[in-house]
Simulated scan of single mutants.
Amino acid sequence: MKEILCFGDSNTYGLVPKENRRFSYEERWTGILSEKLKSDYHITEEGLCGRTTVFEDPFRQGRRASATLPQILESHSDTDLITLMLGTNDLKTCFRTNEKLIANGIEILIKQILQFNSRIKILLISPLLLGEKVWQKEYDPEFDIHSVEISKLLKAEYKFLSEKYKTEFLAASDFVKPSETDQEHLDREAHKIFAEALYKKLTKIF
């Protein structure tokens, strides 16, 4: 059995847009993917709302991935492949960041994985783009117009890192976009589409 660890933020957790609840396991891309892969694979979900790469959120404790990933890797030491999809929360205005700094954060996480076990396959996933209106007050004013523009630059940065460290790569933005409801999270249909994209990618990898 192949062990797959899905490490990410609220779009891995499966947060329902504009609602303080989670999609059911059968609706989340992780659950749909598990069903598609059948009994030869085991999916472990490690999605956390608000998770960043290396930035300490002043308003929410325990969100910095670089502080928790080493322990998570230890507790799932039999992992064959990790999907790494982070960067959206790094775009919040409080971090005053850019695509290069976010890529630097992702690089630190890649190094942590390789240092723990260089045989673990990494599927680096650049996140979906932020919606053009996400910064407006009825959506999520933690972001601004600058955040939206930076989100469009992450794919190229992540692809470069993937080539540098010889990881697998997939761009979520090639397949899905955020819901119109909140401009940042996957809706139910997008979870299905994303799961299908990952299924095709993983079956090629293995």
Rank of each mutant, 00 (worst) to 15 (best):
M1H: 08
M1G: 10
K2R: 15
E3W: 09
I4F: 12
I4Y: 11
L5S: 08
G8H: 02
D9E: 15
D9N: 14
D9Y: 11
Y13F: 15
G14C: 07
G14P: 01
L15H: 08
V16P: 06
P17R: 01
E19G: 05
R22Q: 04
S24D: 03
Y25F: 04
T30R: 02
T30V: 14
L33I: 00
L33C: 09
S34C: 00
K36Q: 02
K36V: 10
L37P: 00
S39N: 11
S39F: 06
D40K: 05
Y41W: 13
I43W: 10
I43Q: 10
E45R: 09
E45H: 10
E45A: 03
E46K: 10
L48S: 01
L48H: 04
G50P: 03
R51E: 12
T53M: 04
V54D: 03
E56H: 07
D57N: 06
F59N: 15
R60S: 08
G62W: 06
G62P: 03
G62A: 04
R63N: 12
R64D: 14
R64V: 08
A65M: 09
A67T: 12
T68W: 09
L69C: 12
P70H: 04
Q71R: 06
Q71E: 15
I72G: 10
L73K: 02
H76T: 03
H76I: 15
H76L: 14
S77P: 07
T79A: 15
L81P: 04
I82H: 01
L86H: 05
L86C: 09
T88M: 10
N89K: 04
D90K: 01
L91S: 11
K92Y: 09
C94A: 12
C94V: 13
C94F: 05
F95K: 09
F95T: 10
N98I: 11
N98M: 11
N98A: 11
L101N: 13
I102S: 11
N104R: 07
I106Y: 00
I106H: 07
E107Q: 10
K111R: 11
K111P: 05
K111A: 08
K111N: 12
Q112Y: 02
Q112D: 03
Q112E: 03
Q112F: 10
Q115A: 11
S118A: 10
R119P: 02
R119D: 02
K121C: 06
K121Y: 01
I125V: 09
I125G: 05
P127C: 00
L128M: 15
L129S: 13
L130W: 00
K133G: 01
K133N: 13
V134S: 01
W135Q: 14
E138H: 05
E138A: 08
Y139R: 01
E142T: 15
S147I: 09
E149M: 12
E149H: 10
I150A: 07
L153W: 07
L153E: 15
L153V: 05
Y158N: 10
F160D: 14
F160E: 15
S162Q: 07
S162K: 03
E163P: 00
Y165F: 03
K166M: 12
F169D: 00
S173L: 14
S173G: 14
F175Q: 02
K177P: 02
S179P: 01
E180Y: 03
E184M: 13
H185E: 00
D187E: 02
D187N: 01
A190W: 00
H191V: 00
K192C: 07
K192A: 15
F194A: 05
A195N: 00
L198I: 05
K201Y: 06
K201G: 01
L202A: 06
F206C: 05
